[in-house]
Each structure stands twice: as C-alpha cells, then as structure tokens.
Design a protein around this nucleic acid. Structure first.
Lengths: 209, 209
DNA sequence: ACCTGAACACCGTTCAAGT
DNA sequence: ACCTGAACACCGTTCAAGT
C-alpha cells in the first residue's frame, strides 16, 4: 500500500523560491525548507542531490520567465530592447536570485535556451560571431549589474554618514528616488548601447557594400 | 606583564582577503580564519563584532585600490574611461569579492570616497545632478556585471551539454577566449557609453547656448 | 586588554531503519 | 520508492575564566 507522495521536485522548488524572495538566500536551509513543506530535512535528498541543485532549479525557474520571443519577429534593435527590459523586469522582481546567475548559464536549461535565442537572433540579423558574443555579454552585464543591487538603496539613510564627503550631502535622499534612479540609469545605458550598435552595424554594412 | 599582541584588525583583514582570493567567500569561516592566524576562533571577536564586519573590511580594502585621481586632472570623458578601467582591473583581480559590493557603498569609507570623487567630477564638468547619478550607476552596473562573472567561463566545457541548442554548438570553446571575450565586451560597452554621453553632453550644451 | 575552552543553537549531508 | 531519526563534522556567536 503506497503512502501518499509528499514531495515533488516542483513543490520543493516553489517553496524554495518563495523563501528566497521573502527572506533571501541565507534563509534557505534544508531543515527550514523541509519544515515549510511539512517534512523532515533528509527527505529532500530523495529529490535533489544537494542544496545547491535546489537553488539552481530556483534560478532557472526565474530565468524561464524572461520573454525571448522577440528575436525572429522583430528587428534586432527592437528585439534586444524588449528582451533586455523583460530580463531586467524579471530579475528586479526576484533580486535575491541574481547573485546565483552571476556565474553564467552553466547547466540550467532556461538560461541556455535564452543564450541560444539571443545569440541566434544576432547571427540571423547579420552580426559576426565575435560581435554577437560581445553584445550578449554586455547586455548581461548591464541587466545583472542593474538588478543585482539597487544603486539608490546602496546609500544609507543616515545623513551623518556623509558629512565628510562634499558631494554626497544629498546621498541619503537617493532611496526616495530609487525607482527613477535605477530605471533611469538602465534605460540611459540601454538606449545609448543600442544606438551605438546601430551605428556600428551601419558602418560595417557600408564598408562591406 | 602584557603578553605580545597576537592580532590586529589589519592582520585579520589581510588573512581574510588572502583566503577569499584563494578559495572563495565560502572558505572563510571564523575558525578557519583564526587557525590561519594561529589563534582560536573567539579571539577574532575582540577586534570585529561579526564575521560580516571582517568581510566588509576586505571589500573596502579592495575598493581602496581603485584609482580615482583622474577626476579634476583630466577631461571628464577620459577620467571616466580611466577610472572604469582601473575599477574593473581591481575587481577582476579579486572576483570573489564582487558579490559583496553589489549592495552599494553602505558604510565602507573607500567606496564612499570613490562615489564622492566620481559624482563630484561629473558635477564639476557640468553634468546636472540627476544625470551624474545615472552615469555613476550605469558604470557601476557595467563594471560589476563584467567583473562578477566571466561571461566566457559561464559556459561548461562539455560539448554534449549544448547538442540541443542550435546556436550554441561552439559555446564550449568560449573558455579558451575568455580574456578577449570579457575584455572585448567591456571595452565595447564603455566606448559606446562614453560616445553616447559625449553626444548627450554636446546636445545639451547646444540647446542651452 | 586580549585570548581561551566550553557551550549554545544551528548547518549540509549520510545512512541504516522503517513503511 | 520515499520518509525518518540519529549521527557526523561542521557553522557564528556568547561568555565566564584565565593572564
């Protein structure tokens, strides 16, 4: 008589994701996660080999939410812009997950599928392999950098902390403008980047024509 | 009769930095660090209140190596470029430290001094406050994003892993070109950003003149 | 003032035992 | 096949005790 199955990989990943979002990466311990699932710690090892595999699955579930469908249907400039905004929106909704993405796609399927779609879209648009690699890397830097830590929130609220820094007298006010600062910096960078690529693309075509 | 003083904050920070560089953040435990210093774990609490304070001091010692002297002596375009390259070079030499910088300068003096120098330099050059904030944030994204994880090393060496991704067939070769990929993407981005800022600056001057 | 040993409440992971 | 309890070798941190 088989007892009811208590755990699945999906239930574990969902609970871990909720814990990471709510309390951060450090809040995830095997025992804590197991308790959240109404189970004992070692039970999780029937479904994942290590704690790290669980966190990897959480990271991949987040990346799977990024929309990469723009490549193929849109001009490469517009596709890059829409993808970058989608990517950043997803990561900004789950900032605690970003540090886990830092070391690349590794073996995570959603991350590999995203890299494939972006790189393929750039090649199809006519970019050479080396440049397409640079563009993908650069946009990853921009998205990860901006999602990893809010620039605005990186300054403490205590004005006294800044009394010896002549130009930072108003830094403690940054937190109030968090959204416009972080969003503004990202959009400024993305716009300038795509404009720069557009010129690079045009000049390469011009030379080769 | 006072015994010889075994520990100083400096000795602790130096040993912690060496451990972070050699084996990563996870290798730093109080007991391990104490053993490296020939002392028992709890002794460290005579010099730092928490392990996190030790790691904060390590992070600030790294940031202190960044050269911010270009602002004031150079044109803002050149100062930004030289500073960004210095910043990236320092972080690339200590990649394991980068995740600790993600949440901003906080209360770390070297990080605050750097923010002050960059922001002040941009204001002196004539940039409005909001734009100067965006530029500082954007360059932090780029430097942190590129130093945080090598894009090239983010792909595994096993070609079999990529067999189902049509455009990633050669991804396993990326590691061989690590330096040129990561450096190339960073330089591409920095050049395009500064060119874009230059045009933005010129057009703002043109309108106001 | 600074270092130590013992102790607290935790970790990730293994494994024999149960069903 | 999957879950459990006990155990292993660790954690960060506290604190009374030593010098």
């Amino acid at each position: 008589m088989a007892r009811p199955r208590l755990l699945t990989r999906e239930r574990i990943v969902d609970a871990a994701a909720a814990l990471v979002d709510a309390e951060g990466l450090d809040a995830v311990s095997i025992r804590r996660l197991a308790a959240e699932l109404g189970v004992q710690g070692p039970s999780l090892y029937n479904h994942f080999a290590t704690k790290n595999e669980i966190l990897d699955a959480v990271a991949d579930a987040v990346v799977a939410q990024v929309n990469v469908s723009f490549f193929g249907t849109h001009d490469w400039r517009e596709a890059l812009r829409l993808w970058a905004h989608s990517y950043r929106a997803v990561l900004s909704a789950h900032p605690n997950v970003v540090p886990m993405l830092a070391h690349g796609p590794g073996r995570r399927p959603a991350a590999l599928a995203m890299a494939d779609a972006v790189y393929g879209g750039l090649l199809d648009a006519g970019w050479p392999e080396a440049r397409a690699t640079h563009i993908g890397a650069l946009l990853r830097y921009l998205v990860h950098g901006s999602a990893l830590g809010s620039f605005a929130l990186g300054f403490a609220e205590d004005p006294l902390l800044y009394e010896h820094y002549p130009h930072l007298q108003r830094a403690h006010l940054l937190a109030e403008h968090k959204h416009s600062v972080d969003e503004g910096a990202f959009t400024l960078g993305l716009d300038m980047f795509i404009a720069g690529l557009d010129r690079l693309f045009a000049s390469a075509k011009g030379v080769s024509a």
